[in-house]
Structure formats: C-alpha cells, structure tokens
C-alpha cells in the first residue's frame, strides 16, 4: 500500500472505530466520547499552530471562548436559532484570531507565548467584567428548546454523539488534507527553519497569519459545539487552565501528528476520570503527566508509535 493509502486507511479506520463505539459501548462512555471528540477538535486547532507551524500559543482559550460565547450570547439575547448562532460563534473566533494574529505575530518566541497569554487574560477579564450578561464564573445554561438543530434534538445521547462525530470527522479529514497539502508543508518548513523558508522566497508572515486564523477558527468551532452540545457557557472555559489543557493534550498525543489530538484528549480524559475517584486535586495528574512527558517522551504517544510501529505516520 502507498503511504497516502496507509494514512487514509488509518484515518477512516479511526472514524469507523468511533462510529462503532456508539453501538458497542455503554451510555457513560458514549457520553464521554462525545465530549472527547469536541475537545479533540479544540486540540486539532492548537496542533495546527503549535505542532505544525511551531508557534506556541498559551492563550487559545480566548478562541474557544469566542466561539462559545458567540453562540451562547446570540441564542440567549438575540433569540436566533442554532445555525445562525453557530455562524456567529465561528465568525467571532475568526475575527478575534485575525486581530490577535496581526498583533501577536509581531513578536517571536517567548514574547509570542506571553502576548497570547495576556490577550487571553484580557478576554477572560472582559467576560468577568460583563458579568451582568455572561454570568461570570457561574455561567449560564442553554435550554433544550433553544438547542434544536432544525428539527434534530442535540440534547439526546444519540443526537449529541452524532453531531460531535460528524464535526470531528470533517475536522480530522480536512486537517489531514491540510497537513498533506503544499500549504501544510510550508507551515512545517517555517517550523523547522523560519530563516530558510524566508530565504526560499516564502512570505513567512502571511503563512503564520493564516495558521493563526485557521487554528483560532477551528478552536472557535470547538467552543461553539461545546456550548451547543452540553448546553453550558461559563467563564472557566476562557481561563488560563483551558489554554494549558489543549497544549497538554497535543503534547501527550503527539505534537505535529494528525492523530495526536484525539489520542491526547482521550488518554487525559480517562486518566483524570480514573484519578478523580481518589482525589479532588486531579490536576496533579496533569502536572505529573506534563513533567514526565517533556522529560521522557517529548514527541508524545503518536511520536512513540511513529518511532516503533508506523514510520509513515503523518
């Protein structure tokens, strides 16, 4: 089989497996998996920027929150139906990522991380400041009646699973296509050696900006989906913790690998799920995982798979 054939087989195999899970697994895990798939879209968003372009953003929660509040607030206050609200959510994230990209890309390295962190902090504080509308940390709930996708009820277990599955499939397949395209290869070239990419005549700044916009918008899609499927919008999702978590997922699964985000989210979800039975300080597990990963497996689970089993892993 050609390499491209193997890659396609792997991706479709994963999607088939996820589809089968709905019929095999008990209800609890089906619910968990729909959450995992939505969060994996978020991780895919960060992976485009961090894993493929080599830009480490510590503020991706602002894009997730833009999508989430774009959808949530427009449903709550404008009374629009789900599809236009979803469009507003994505548009908010896209506009925010253009602005952040234009400003933050003037900096490099450590400064870029801190600028994104501070922009995200600003957004988080803005959400708290307008607590009258956003209900701050407490958040607000979207009612079942407000969450009808045309005539399709997304609040049932099956509805939620299939919407999450559909969105995740689209994201994974287009993400894989993006990575294989010449555009994706140029991003990797920038990650590997920015100077050389520039010397070869590529407009590095433009590609980085596009990477920020795509990455931020995909994260916004995840935020809007999360609000739609789980019916809750809260400031926690804009906090620093939700900027760190996708980084953890991507690193754990494998930065710069198409299947990394899903593996990372699933692994971390079940790790925390298992440990929260014993302690309320479950973020301790996240901390230990980060330290151990960065020390012993900086390329994540997919990186290990690539080294040991599938050298062609994209």
């Amino acid at each position: 089989m050609t390499v491209a054939g193997k890659i396609n087989t792997l991706h479709f195999g994963i999607l088939l497996f996820l589809l089968a899970c709905f019929f095999i697994l008990p209800a609890y895990h089906v619910g968990a998996l729909s959450r995992i798939m939505v969060l994996a879209i978020y991780a895919i968003g960060l992976n485009i920027l961090f894993g493929y372009t080599g830009l480490l953003s510590l503020g991706h929660a602002m894009f997730f929150a833009a999508g989430m509040y774009g959808l949530g607030l427009s449903i709550k206050f404008l009374g629009v139906s789900v599809i236009p609200a979803f469009g507003i959510g994505i548009l908010s994230a896209a506009v925010l990522s253009v602005l952040v990209g234009l400003l933050a890309l003037r900096t490099v390295g450590v400064s870029f991380m801190i600028v994104t962190l501070m922009f995200a902090q600003t957004i988080y504080l803005v959400v708290l400041y307008f607590g009258e509308y956003t209900r701050g940390d407490e958040g607000f709930v979207l009612q079942q009646a407000e969450r009808m996708l045309l005539n399709f009820d997304v609040t049932t277990e099956a509805g939620r699973y299939f919407v999450a599955f559909g969105a995740f499939s689209i994201c994974l397949i287009s993400f894989a296509a993006l990575v294989q395209s010449s555009f994706g290869k140029r991003l990797v070239a920038i990650r590997e050696n920015e100077e050389r990419a520039r010397m070869l005549g590529y407009d590095v700044w433009r590609y980085k900006l596009l990477a920020v916009i795509i990455s931020g918008t995909v994260s916004g899609v995840a935020g809007a989906l999360y609000a739609l499927l789980f019916g809750y919008v809260g400031a926690t999702f804009a906090s620093v913790q939700y900027s760190i978590l996708p980084l953890l997922w991507v690193l754990l699964g494998g930065a710069g690998k198409t299947i990394g985000p899903l593996i990372g989210v699933a692994f971390m979800f079940y790790l925390i799920d298992a440990s929260s039975a014993y302690t309320s300080a479950y973020m301790l597990i996240a901390g230990l995982a980060l330290v151990i990963l960065t020390m012993f497996a900086p390329r994540g689970i997919a990186g290990i798979l690539q080294a040991k089993v599938w050298p062609w892993l994209p």
């Binding site: 991380m113 760190i244 980084l247 309320s280 973020m283 301790l284 901390g287 980060l290 960065t294």
Partner: peptide, 27 residues
Amino acid sequence: KRINYDPDRTIVGTIGILFIIQQTTLM
C-alpha cells in the same frame, strides 16, 4: 537539567511543576 534547558520543553516542564506544587498544596 535533564531536559537540557530547552526553552519550549522548560515551559511545559515548569507548567507541570506549577500544577504539582499547587495541587499538592490543595491536598
């Protein structure tokens, strides 16, 4: 020392230390 003070990996490692210290204090 073991990750050779690589800038990116140090940030990730110290984020890990952050959570370890914070959560141990919580416990």
